[in-house]
Design a protein around this nucleic acid. Structure first.
Lengths: 234, 234
DNA sequence: TAGATTGTTAATCGATTAACAATC
DNA sequence: TAGATTGTTAATCGATTAACAATC
């Protein structure tokens, strides 16, 4: 659970808010002004009861008998997600993946501003991407402070991740999105979200193995949120 | 839950197996031959009770009073994940991100073999990455069949994702790792894992907002697996 | 034997789902 | 009013945690 003011929002709910927001924005750009919990739920890949329950943690945004105003609900969720204020973002580790993430064009539209690219490799330092020059990690502390970075995407090799993460945290950063496949050991007040591509593939491999064991042996799949044709964020 | 043979494995457990496997491989390369549930749990970023419970779904691999043989346990988890057989992988959508994923060097070591790169953009078709040439999506069906693809990484723009996913599923592929931020509507027997970078950043933004509301307003964080300094896969 | 550590049980906790009263 | 749809309650379900007997 995550408490905001007097309100407590389950972690699982928070993880679904971006889905609702995206579905609402899609509706908006289709010119749809009103939607129901079942319509929005279908677009988001969840059940309508779950959608209504999730929204109920944030407040009461709909009209009984009518549904939700798409624009109002989008603003409310966006506000709940703290997307009103700009979040200044640095990418640390500008290899293949870091570079691809730097070139992602959706940051601004979502309230994020990429303000620094940092790497330890002299061959990478000095290159530019997304209008920024890659700077040397020797100057990490200085750069994070000067640019007011509050969030970091960590895309270094696994071996470097822990040490770099500690330096980042020492600069006061408390939100990290890590692509390094290691369990970072950091203070409890630091929020780390991890994306592990190889791990995701292994989970898929497990499902494939279960499927094969099933036909011929006796296997089935049951109640796994990751197993439905559609499902929210890992 | 996911049933394998007579055994049922909770989805949450499956999602942690890759962490244990990685930690075990790290131990192996450090020359460590034996570990305890608490030692391995710490490396994996989970509690020791959870680790033992997770392993108990797969079987009994340790020795009371002693611990686990690192190599044996790694093999057992690897087998459970179905990494014994090779999984043939295609990347559909070879933009920034798809290209970065193509250049990822860890597939082979993890039992995956990248056998095709497919894109719809004539400017991208014909380029090469990771020793493969990007082929046109007009020939998607033909390519997936000819190469025996069983798993696909989908990294197309959101607008194309649903249609392309349907074609992929029509080819018999049942495991998809999607980087497109849309809720794919696919048959229930298709397993979709989704990675949404912008969504992850939004979740971090929510935590940042909660933190700020906390100091000065009254907010706290409570029991969120994503909130601990270390935590498993999104 | 004494110490250590597993595997499992039972209790707790959190998340999901179904149903429905409130109400537009 | 009749129909529709929300917001919420209560029941179910699944996951985590703590504790401990089994046993090396």
């Amino acid at each position: 659970m995550i408490e905001i003011g007097e309100v407590t929002v389950p972690a699982a709910t928070v993880a679904r808010l971006p889905f609702y927001l995206r579905a609402l924005r899609d509706l908006l750009s289709d010119g749809v002004t009103t939607t129901s919990s079942s319509g929005l739920a279908e677009r988001s890949g969840v059940g309508s009861a779950q959608l209504r329950k999730d929204l109920s943690y944030l407040g009461s945004f709909g009209t009984r008998g009518v549904g939700y105003d798409v624009e109002t609900l989008a603003s409310s969720i966006s506000a709940a997600l703290g997307l009103g204020s700009e979040h200044r973002l640095a990418i640390v580790g500008v290899g293949n993946l870091g570079n691809a993430l730097a070139n992602y064009s959706g940051y601004a539209a979502r309230g994020f501003r990429l303000v620094a690219l940092i790497d330890a490799d002299p061959d990478v330092v000095g290159r530019s991407a997304a209008g920024l020059e890659v700077e040397h990690s020797d100057r990490l502390e200085e750069i994070l402070a000067a640019r007011g970075v509050s969030m970091v995407i960590l895309a270094t090799p696994g071996a470097a991740a822990q040490a770099v993460a500690e330096r980042i945290v020492a600069c006061g950063v408390r939100e990290i999105l890590s692509f390094s496949p290691v369990a970072l050991q950091l203070p409890d007040d630091v929020v780390v979200r991890s994306v592990d591509v190889a791990g995701e593939l292994q989970i898929l491999a497990f499902h494939a193995a279960a499927r094969h064991a099933q036909s011929g042996d006796a296997v089935g799949v049951d109640g796994d949120p990751a197993v439905a044709g559609v499902q929210p964020s890992a």
